[in-house]
């Protein structure tokens, strides 16, 4: 657990236009260790996907990384040239996108898309790549015959599992899951999460898990960072975060989801118009619990800010 796979240091991403620059991520720092599941949670637009895309260097104009470092196994990702980057992508870090439903090329067979990525990185014949694709499909419990199918012939859940299988194709050390289940219903969500957990046990990769769904997040992650307005406001092991959150935004986020078990609880959230501006750097609260200091009062259970 102690070997860091990914270190993000003071990452700042700006969306630059002619008139002004908006910070999509602001001095974000976190570390993901080998085999760990690290969660990033927060509302829409808080910068979760920006972080995911900058780790793989997939940011498009007008977004650019203006400050900070991304180290993968100690190697500087931001310093890689095009060829290094291509070889590194998917081989070491694979990603399941927010809309994995549309992540597959609609005009080529599923099998071809596996072969494409396997042969680009590993070489070998078409037949061996196909064989590997069959194994991968079996791992996510999809009939290998479906390799002959086109994406539109599969259900949303199947497509999502195929993308996950594809992400495992090269045994990456880190898997980025950017809201992998948002477009799916709750039952399929559970199946997929189950599968991700199984795959992780089997293959031992680390996961960066991004979602706004706190119940999913608490269920899956070892450690969680809560983002707000491009900054991390609280970072803690999930057990501590669940029961002993210190930042009012974290509490509001947790309060916005009904617990699946136990007595009825009144849902709470941020009151109208509450905003956190100028979020300070995190302070150590012990046991790996880091919180950004704030003037806003800490909430007790069931109370709106």
């Amino acid at each position: 657990m102690s070997v860091p796979v990914l270190e993000v240091q003071e990452l700042t991403v700006e969306y630059v236009s002619d008139e002004r620059a908006v910070r999509g991520a602001d001095r974000v720092s976190f570390t993901i260790h080998a085999g760990e599941i690290f969660g990033l949670a927060g509302e829409s637009g808080c910068g979760k996907s920006t972080i995911a895309n900058s780790i793989m260097r997939l940011l498009k104009d007008p977004a650019r990384i203006t400050h900070g470092k991304i180290l993968f196994d100690g190697k500087d990702v931001l310093g890689m040239d095009e060829a290094e980057l291509r070889a590194w992508r998917w081989n070491n870090v694979a990603m399941v996108f927010q809309s994995a439903m549309n992540s597959l090329n609609p005009v080529t067979r599923i099998g071809e898309q596996f072969v494409d990525v396997i042969r680009t990185h590993r070489g070998g014949t078409r037949a061996t790549a196909m064989q590997r694709a069959e194994e991968l499909l079996k791992m996510v419990r999809i009939d290998p015959a479906r390799l002959r199918a086109y994406p539109h012939q599969l259900s949303g859940g199947q497509r999502q599992r195929i993308v996950i299988a594809m992400a495992c194709a090269l045994n990456p050390r880190l898997l980025i899951l950017d809201e992998p289940t948002t477009a799916l219903d709750v039952v399929v969500q559970q199946e997929i999460l189950e599968q991700i957990r199984d795959l992780q046990n089997e293959l031992g990769f680390a996961i960066l898990f991004i979602t706004h769904d706190m119940s999913l997040m608490l269920e899956l992650s070892n450690r969680i960072g809560i983002m707000y307005g491009g900054r991390i406001v609280e970072l803690a092991p999930s057990r501590i975060l669940h029961h002993d959150s210190r930042h009012p935004y974290t509490q509001a986020l947790l309060g916005a989801f009904p617990p699946l078990h136990g007595p009825k609880v009144k849902l709470t959230g941020l009151a109208e118009g509450v905003k956190f501006t100028n979020v300070q750097d995190l302070e150590d609260h012990g046991d790996g619990h880091w919180v950004a200091p704030t003037d806003q009062p800490v909430l007790s259970q069931g109370e709106a800010l």
């Binding site: 793989m56 990603m95 993308v163």
Partner: peptide, 16 residues
């Protein structure tokens, strides 16, 4: 489209 971004993340060659 998303599948273009995914293809890029897959580390495929640009002309491909």
């Amino acid at each position: 489209e998303d599948y273009i971004l995914m293809a890029e993340a897959k580390g495929l060659r640009p002309h491909r």
